[in-house]
C-alpha cells in the first residue's frame, strides 16, 4: 500500500486534532476510511509502513496511561516514526516546570507530532498554541478524548455498516467523562441518536443541551438500542457522594443480561476499558464475544491513531517531497 493511494484525495482541514467538537462529517469519514486501510495493514505479518520515516513523535503524558500511550506508540512505530515517550513522573514536570515551558522546550527539539494527555480540561489546546507541530489530544481533563471516539466510531461502522440513525446509549459517569463528551459530539455529527444513562448526580439534565436524551432508568434508556457503550466508573468518584455504594450502583446501572434484554437483539456492547467487572458491567456480558466489541475497540484504536498521525503530517510530508 503506497502513500499515494492512502491519502491521495483526503483533505483534512485542521492543523491539530484537539477535539471532536468542531469537526464535520467529511473530516470524520476521511479518518475512518483511512483507518480501515490500516486495519488491513495491522493484520498482516509485516505491519511496517515507512510513511513517517524521519518524523519525530513525542508522547507527552501528564496523566498516567498505559493503554492509550501504547496504542499511540505502536501506531507511530508501525508508520516508521521515531517515537519518544515522556511521562510526568521523574521528569521536569515533577520539578515544577510549567506546562508552557515544557511545551517550548519540546518544541525546540523539532518534533513533528505531539501526542498529549493532561489532567485539566483545555490544557492540550493551551499547549497547542505554543508549538509549531501537529498536536493530538490523547485526553484533556473531563473535556475530550477524540481518538477514543474515532475508534468507537470505526468499530461501530465496521460491525453495523453505518453510524447514522443508530440508537446509541452511553451509560455511567457522563459528567466526568471525556470519552462520553467526544462520543456525544461524534455520534451527533454522524447522525446517530444518542442517549445517556446514569444517576442524576453523574448524568445531569443539562447534558440534554449537547443533543442527547437523558435517562435515569437504565431499562428505559436501553430500550431498542443498537449500541450500548459502558463507561468506566472511576474509583475516585465512588467516595465522592455521587452514589451510595457499589452494590447499589451495580443493581441500578450495572449492565447484565436482564437489563440488556430490552435492547435490540443484536445490540453491540462497547467499553473503553479498563473494565470494572461487577461494578459497571457483569463479567458474563463482557466476555460474550457475540455481543461485546471490547477487544475489537482496542484493535481499531491502533488503526485510528495511525490514520490520525498520517493525516496530520500529510501536508508537511508533501511539502518536503517538493
Amino acid at each position: 500500500m503506497s502513500e499515494a493511494e492512502n491519502t491521495a484525495n483526503i483533505i483534512f482541514p485542521h492543523q491539530h486534532l484537539l477535539g471532536i467538537e468542531g469537526l464535520k462529517e467529511p473530516d470524520i469519514n476521511c479518518i475512518l476510511d483511512l483507518a480501515d486501510k490500516y486495519v488491513e495493514l495491522n493484520r498482516k505479518t509485516n505491519k511496517k509502513s515507512d510513511i513517517l520515516t524521519g518524523l519525530t513523535q513525542i508522547n507527552l503524558f501528564f496523566e498516567n496511561s498505559t493503554r492509550t500511550r501504547m496504542s499511540f506508540e505502536l501506531a507511530g512505530k508501525r508508520l516508521g516514526a521515531d517515537v519518544i515517550n515522556m511521562s510526568s513522573s521523574g521528569s521536569s514536570i515533577k520539578k515544577g516546570e510549567t506546562l508552557l515551558d515544557t511545551a517550548s522546550t519540546l518544541n525546540a527539539m523539532q518534533p513533528d507530532l505531539l501526542v498529549v494527555r493532561h489532567g485539566n480540561s483545555g490544557a492540550v489546546k493551551l499547549l497547542s498554541r505554543k508549538v509549531n507541530c501537529a498536536v493530538l489530544n490523547a485526553g484533556d481533563g473531563k473535556h475530550e478524548h477524540p481518538t477514543q471516539a474515532l475508534l468507537d466510531a470505526l468499530t461501530i461502522r465496521r460491525r453495523k455498516g453505518k453510524i447514522s440513525r443508530l440508537t446509541v446509549a452511553i451509560c455511567g459517569d457522563i459528567l466526568h467523562s471525556r470519552v462520553a463528551r467526544s462520543n456525544i459530539h461524534l455520534l451527533n455529527i454522524m447522525g446517530a441518536r444518542v442517549r445517556v444513562i446514569g444517576p442524576s448526580t453523574l448524568v445531569p439534565e443539562s447534558l440534554s443541551e449537547l443533543g442527547v436524551d437523558v435517562f435515569h432508568d437504565m431499562k428505559k434508556g436501553l430500550k431498542d438500542c443498537d449500541i450500548v457503550m459502558m463507561l468506566r466508573l472511576q474509583t475516585e468518584r465512588m467516595h465522592g457522594g455521587y452514589f451510595p455504594s457499589i452494590s447499589e450502583y451495580f443493581t441500578l446501572y450495572g449492565l447484565d443480561y436482564e437489563k440488556l434484554s430490552v435492547a435490540k437483539e443484536d445490540a453491540m456492547i462497547m467499553h473503553p476499558g479498563p473494565m470494572n467487572r461487577g461494578v459497571e458491567i457483569d463479567a458474563a456480558v463482557a466476555d460474550d464475544l457475540t455481543r461485546s466489541a471490547i477487544q475489537e475497540q482496542v484493535e481499531m484504536g491502533v488503526a485510528v491513531r495511525m490514520a490520525c498521525l498520517d493525516i496530520l503530517t500529510k501536508q508537511k510530508r508533501q511539502e518536503a517531497e517538493k
Binding site: G122, D140, G141, K142, E144, P204, L207, E209
Partner: peptide
C-alpha cells in the same frame, strides 16, 4: 455550573 461547564468539562 450549567450546560457550558458540562461542555467544557470544567467543574
Amino acid at each position: 455550573a450549567g450546560p457550558l461547564a458540562v461542555r467544557l468539562g470544567l467543574p
